[in-house]
Computed example of a mutant assay.
Amino acid sequence: METAAAQGPPAPVPWQRLDQSHQTMRQQEGCWNERTLCALQLAVFAGVTGSFVGAVYRARHRPRDIAFLVVTYWLIALLVCLVRKLEILRLDAATREAERRRVRLAVWAVTVALTNTVAWRVTDAMPYLALKLAVWGVALVVLSLAFYFVFCRKAEQCCNAEHGHVQADAGGGRRPESTFGELSPEEKV
């Protein structure tokens, strides 16, 4: 009995750590901001769901259109959930890089699927080859931007002070940021 009491509480499971970091983040945002954010998210969700229901009703006699709408709605909902999970993982310093990489790959896969689904549907409606090629060109640009933001751009490159995050290594060998044209103390010497 003494050994169990000496060990302390068990380490939290990874999903519990995520939930705890999510709760801490919500507490830091404040009560009013949380309610406003929740109301805004509910309004957007209701609006998007209402438009999809209306579109499904208008396409009720065309099974191909209904399948496109259902798949698109499901991919958008999945993408929103995965991006939110990625945000939570980036805020939690205790998460492993392998877990973040898995979520990034999932975000990328859903983005590719959604972009290709929409591009195929739009190109079916285009009358000329030039317009079809333009649609696929725009899809390629969207996928390139998504690849850059998911894999190439690091989360640390954003302004942490703007988001209320504390810089982990304030003086860890990096040069302090300076305004344009201002010399750093090392350059003045």
Rank of each mutant, 00 (worst) to 15 (best):
G47A: 12
N160Y: 07
L133Y: 07
V166P: 00
S21K: 12
A59N: 02
V80Y: 12
G172V: 04
L145G: 02
V118L: 04
G137D: 08
W15Y: 12
V44T: 10
N33D: 09
A59H: 02
E162I: 03
V142H: 04
G171E: 08
D65T: 08
L183S: 15
V112W: 15
T123I: 06
L131Q: 10
G8Q: 04
A161H: 00
A130L: 10
G164T: 01
V142A: 14
A55W: 00
W32H: 12
E186L: 11
S21D: 10
R62W: 00
A11E: 02
R17C: 06
C152T: 13
P63E: 01
R84N: 14
D19V: 10
L183T: 09
A43T: 15
V189S: 13
V80T: 09
P176R: 14
P185I: 03
V166E: 01
A98T: 09
V71C: 13
T95G: 02
F147K: 06
C152A: 12
R26C: 05
L183Q: 14
L114K: 12
V107Q: 01
R64D: 11
C38T: 13
P127A: 08
I76A: 14
W136P: 09
T123R: 11
E97T: 13
V103E: 01
E162A: 07
L140G: 02
G8H: 04
L105W: 13
T72N: 03
P10E: 01
F52Q: 00
K188P: 09
C159W: 02
V103K: 05
L133M: 13
A11V: 00
V13E: 14
G181N: 08
F151A: 08
V122L: 12
A67S: 11
A6E: 12
Q28C: 06
H22T: 14
H163L: 15
A170F: 08
A168N: 05
V71S: 10
K132Y: 03
C158S: 07
A134F: 06
H61T: 12
L129G: 06
Q27W: 06
W108V: 06
R17W: 03
L129H: 11
V13F: 06
H165Q: 11
T49N: 07
P9M: 04
V80D: 07
H163F: 12
F68N: 04
A6H: 05
A4M: 10
F149E: 03
T115Y: 04
G30V: 02
V122P: 02
E162W: 02
V110G: 07
V70Y: 01
L82M: 12
Y128A: 10
